[in-house]
Design a binder for these strands. Structure first.
Lengths: 220, 220
DNA sequence: CTATCTTCTGACCAAATGGTCAGAAGTTGG
DNA sequence: CCAACTTCTGACCATTTGGTCAGAAGATAG
């Protein structure tokens, strides 16, 4: 049960403004909801469970987010913000050696820092993106196409082997994503209670090396 | 609504034995349930929905599978059967060039042929494997450790670069799995209604090439 | 201090859900 | 043909779930 920011300090002094209260509570609820949605999925998460974890009465959750779906949308829009933000553009001028390395490292770091977000996103896609379809079809597709184009230009410049750009993108996405999604499984398989920093670094090193070599790029 | 095997042929003749009826119906229900669970997740799938899709009254579903969880377990055990079956052992004697190629091709074919199973499995793992934990900790981990060991032997024989075996396994698993999981997303990104055989072949070729080169294996 | 606005909450509700059960309908073996 | 057994199903039930609402409690502005 993650405590909300205030809780004890309800005495007359140390008062927060209404605006402040609203923001604090909204964010607190969103944080709790994100965790639960990522652990149990949309249907598996009840408003009551969120309320208990957030130490707030159920009706209060619904005061801030009028429906369960609205709450979920709130979580999703937070996630997409992170996503788009970190999805740095690779440029045709950059050498793929650097651009791909940066991309992989960034993505894996993201999987480490925002595992809930990563997993919600993955679950969303897995079930046909019922809530994200629109956004994926516009924003993400644009990004995807642009990046594939960069790959093609690198290939034209003979900076890398003529690999299938689309499949390279799939491979980059899935294998970096895996470090968040399969954390549970990883723990089972590696017999660790959690992936540590070293594991993430090893993963990044491994992937960078594999991708660069696999694309015929001299890592220098 | 996928029709059940019998349906019309209820007239006196052309009768099926009770044993036959039982098997037919069980399998029919499992098939329908598998599809729905993969599309909507465990909590998102109601018995009523399964009943409607299977063209059977709800009570009949519960006659064959006493609880929702039992039905889900039935689906899962089907899935694990497929999984373990196709998880061919790579052996230290095989050259990684052939073994890895076979593995990737097989896995991707599996993603194509059993997309529902693949997705249920992925969702299960994503949510901490609430129903599969035991099996993963025993069967899958054994397989995992054994395969990592094979990689180590290949490395000792200088048949491939000294890559991190565990991370290679992750990468193989996630990037092949992706061809089932992300089918939706793939369709969005590639603007196709479905991945066709060519796409799966391209994916396999790409991955084989990438992995072999990435591991410093001469593809011959 | 007071009138007004926002925040908060217990009590309540209709619908959906997993599950039960008695008994009808069909099958089987003798 | 009959007794025993399996399959099937409509009606029913308790619980859970998302959501409403009236009014209490607290904050704010004049």
């Amino acid at each position: 049960m993650s405590k909300r920011p205030d809780s004890t300090a309800k005495s007359k002094h140390n008062r927060r403004s209404l605006a402040q209260v609203r923001q604090d509570n909204s964010e607190h609820i969103l944080r709790v909801a994100e965790r639960l949605f990522s652990e149990r999925g949309y249907s598996g998460t009840t408003i009551m469970a969120i309320a208990e974890e957030a130490c707030l009465p159920k009706a209060n959750i619904l005061y801030y987010f009028h429906t369960k779906e609205a709450l979920y949308q709130g979580v999703l829009s937070n996630i997409l913000k992170i996503w788009m933000l970190s999805m740095n553009d690779m440029t045709p001028e950059q050498h793929p050696r650097d651009a791909l390395r940066d991309y992989i490292v960034k993505k894996i770091r993201q999987s480490k820092e925002y595992p809930h977000a990563s997993r919600i996103f993955a679950a969303e896609v897995l079930h046909g993106a019922p809530f994200l379809r629109k956004q994926l079809e516009t924003d993400l597709k644009e990004q995807f196409d642009k990046t594939c184009d960069v790959f093609r230009q690198w290939i034209a410049k003979k900076w890398m082997d003529p690999v299938h750009p689309e499949h390279l993108m799939f491979m980059l996405w899935s294998s970096t994503q895996a470090y968040a999604d399969v954390q549970v499984q990883s723990c089972i398989l590696l017999s660790k209670s959690e992936l540590d920093d070293q594991d993430f670094n090893d993963g990044a090193d491994f992937l960078v090396r594999m991708v660069l070599k696999g694309c015929g790029i001299n890592p220098v």
